[in-house]
Design a protein around this nucleic acid. Structure first.
Lengths: 120, 120
DNA sequence: CAAGTATTTAGTTAAATGCCTAATTAAGCA
DNA sequence: TGCTTAATTAGGCATTTAACTAAATACTTG
């Protein structure tokens, strides 16, 4: 279960347009690290990408993207795994799933309480 | 459906500890506006509270709480309705529900895509 | 080991954020 | 019509954030 501080970190991470777009990119990119296109050196998930490949899609300098990725990783919504001299990045589905169920629980409980209150 | 900018606003709003706690307070408070306890003047939902009642639970000045509430309202996660000279505040379940289903859709699609990729 | 590739760290700067107090608006009541 | 209550607006200040460039680290390869 995500504790409150962790949830706040996640919201903070996604509450910035650039980071939100980076997350979207990691999540839906659907491209391998472009550096591996011609000559793949390591075996990774078909969704995995790497820092400089993500940066290609943005007008910000590489260190800026790197810092944003660090914040997304610290929030637990992406994973970054070093293989060879690159870092392969994937969404952390476990966290996304948990976050979804938090909201579901919130809605269900609220509905249940309302029903309880208004029952005959 | 929540558009991207709206989602970012929601995340930004909840990505600050004070606002997160205010939201929690609005959501789970379970108390009427304390000013109405003895002598209720208007009829509101049993969950509704008001700005100064929320502020009682925090060590921040009233204008600070007011500003935070405004941000939560602009993000669409609470509603604020003026009745008499007080403002009654409630969680906006519609937005919470939508946000939950966004994450659910994200998870489901990802799982579906993964399954598609790895199928025999 | 030198050169190249991938990424992070350090240090700087401008803008945004979060808080405060004082003043203002709005509504209800004696 | 003034007095009280509820909330917002205005203005100021300290801290944090998000960006940059330059330098450092880590790993690979000739």
């Amino acid at each position: 279960m995500l504790d409150m501080q962790q949830k706040i970190k996640i919201f903070k991470a996604l509450g910035n347009e650039t980071r939100f777009l980076i997350f979207k990119n990691v999540f839906t990119g659907g491209y391998t690290c472009s550096l591996d296109k011609k000559d793949p050196k390591v075996k990774v998930s078909p969704h995995a990408t790497c820092v400089s490949t993500i940066a290609e899609h943005f007008d910000f300098a590489l260190p800026t993207i790197s810092k944003h990725l660090k914040e997304l990783r610290e929030a637990g919504i992406i994973t970054m795994e070093k293989k060879s001299n690159k870092i392969y990045i994937e969404p952390n589905m476990e966290t996304i799933r948990e976050l979804g169920s938090c909201f579901n629980t919130l809605v269900e409980n609220f509905d249940a309480n309302r029903e309880l209150f208004f029952k005959a």
